[in-house]
Simulated scan of single mutants.
Amino acid sequence: MKVGQSLDVPENTEVLDYRNFTITPGLIDSHTHILTNQGLNEDLSIDAVMNSSESRVLRAAYFADSYLNAGFTTIRDLGNSGQYLDVEVKNAIEKGYIKGPRMLVSGPIIGSMDGQFYHLPVKDFQRISEQEQTMISGVEEAKKAVKEHIVQGVDVIKILAIGNRLTLSLDEMKAIVQTAHEQRLKVTVHCDRDWAVQAAIEAGVDGVEHGYGFRDTTLKIMAKKGIYLVPTYGSVKGAVHYHEIMNLKYNIEDIRNSLERRGKDLIRASQLGVRIVAGSDAYHDTKMPRGDDAKQTIWGYYDYGLSAEDVLKTATANAAIALEMKDQIGVIKENAFADLAVFEGDLKKDFKKSLFQVKMVMKDGKIQYQK
């Protein structure tokens, strides 16, 4: 892809004139779950119990197309996807069987023996947990789990710092990180509380997902070590939408106040030098296109005080670095992948409106969506 002014245009070239639009690199969602569609009042395990692998893959194809139409040209899928169903969807997109963004995938999340399913009957716990996750106990099982994931074709390893009650031990996490790094794969950790992330940081993880309420000391260590943060925070608009589809009464100021702490966390982390990477963690059935649902996180970052430029950076250049694809995606430059998103209007002046008015999406130099 050539980028610049006064370029020589070969004869018979189709010229697309977007002088009154905003052109950005293709957007990146670094925390997706397109094999899951959890009801808003259901347990996480219900979707896995009630739907076959075939149904989940077909549904994921629909979600993938929605992401592409919303301007996302790359997503990173982080588990809750059965036994490597995410790899199947990724391969189908790469082979051209279905349309969707470029995918990087983790396979089953690696965690302790209690996983993330809290309300399953005892007789069903083992079966469902082993279907959805890789539960380990001990260093050797940790190493073996990473190698199995690599053999199955994953791009990143995702671990649970803490499941329902149990944590992975420091030695287990060190074994996971060392094994992954030896094979040139990065490790990101699910962690939603400060105390539980300390062992993961010591073990050498590359990224942290969620990161609610981290202390300044923790954020400073992350910044020093170059550990990125994916704050999967929602927006005021998303919270209002939830209340409306659930027929719940709400007060807009109460919603804003309840989300204010998340905004302070985000700004604090950014100011302390932590690389912020956009990730939606969208996996609920919100009755809106999955791609639009994913944008609620980007909208939220803007609500919380990041500038339009900084918000876009979290979903482009910052994400590209976290995904080990710097200068390939998340930028518009010569020799990068030709991933572009075109939005109506001026994103700087009317960010929230333009973000949802996608005019054209290009991936690898080919138009995937055009309005």
Rank of each mutant, 00 (worst) to 15 (best):
K249Q: 14
F63Q: 12
P121A: 05
R59C: 00
E42W: 08
G345Q: 00
P108E: 02
F337K: 15
R102W: 11
G163H: 05
V230D: 06
K353H: 15
D8G: 09
Y283T: 05
F351E: 09
G273A: 02
Q178Y: 13
D124S: 14
K224V: 09
P108T: 00
V274Q: 07
Q198I: 10
G345Y: 03
K147W: 12
L160Q: 06
V342T: 04
A317S: 13
T297E: 10
V177H: 05
K326E: 14
K143N: 13
E253G: 03
Y67W: 05
Q131H: 14
Y369E: 07
D346E: 08
M362K: 02
L170A: 07
V342K: 05
V146W: 01
N20D: 14
K186N: 13
Y118T: 14
G291R: 03
M1N: 11
Y233W: 03
Q126I: 06
K220Y: 03
Q357F: 12
K349N: 13
M325L: 05
S235H: 04
Q116Y: 11
V139C: 06
D206R: 00
M135C: 10
I329D: 04
G207H: 06
R76G: 09
L323K: 04
G96K: 02
K186M: 14
A294Q: 10
N257G: 08
D364K: 10
R268T: 03
A200N: 06
Y212N: 12
K144W: 09
M246A: 08
I110Y: 01
G300V: 02
R215V: 12
Y301P: 11
V361D: 11
H210N: 03
G111M: 02
M1Q: 11
G100A: 05
G100D: 07
R193W: 13
I150E: 02
G138N: 07
K90T: 02
K2Y: 13
V9G: 13
L355V: 01
R261M: 14
D29M: 05
I109C: 03
K352S: 11
K225A: 09
D281A: 04
N318P: 12
A199D: 12
P101F: 04
G279I: 04
G211W: 01
Y62H: 12
T232V: 00
S30R: 05
S66P: 07
D192G: 15
E244A: 01
I201F: 10
E148K: 13
M135P: 10
A338L: 03
G96W: 05
G211I: 07
K264M: 14
Y118G: 09
G234K: 07
V57C: 01
Y369P: 11
E140L: 03
I321D: 11
Y228M: 05
L85V: 04
Q328N: 14
E42S: 13
D29E: 01
T218V: 03
Y212W: 12
N257H: 10
G213I: 06
V187I: 02
K144H: 12
S169E: 06
K295Q: 08
L229K: 01
A338S: 09
D86Q: 04
L166Y: 15
G100K: 01
Q152Y: 12
V146A: 02
P10T: 02
L219E: 02
Y283L: 11
A317W: 15
K371D: 15
R193K: 14
A180R: 07
R19D: 08
S55N: 10
G39M: 00
D171E: 13
K333E: 08
S354W: 08
G4T: 05
T217D: 12
K359W: 11
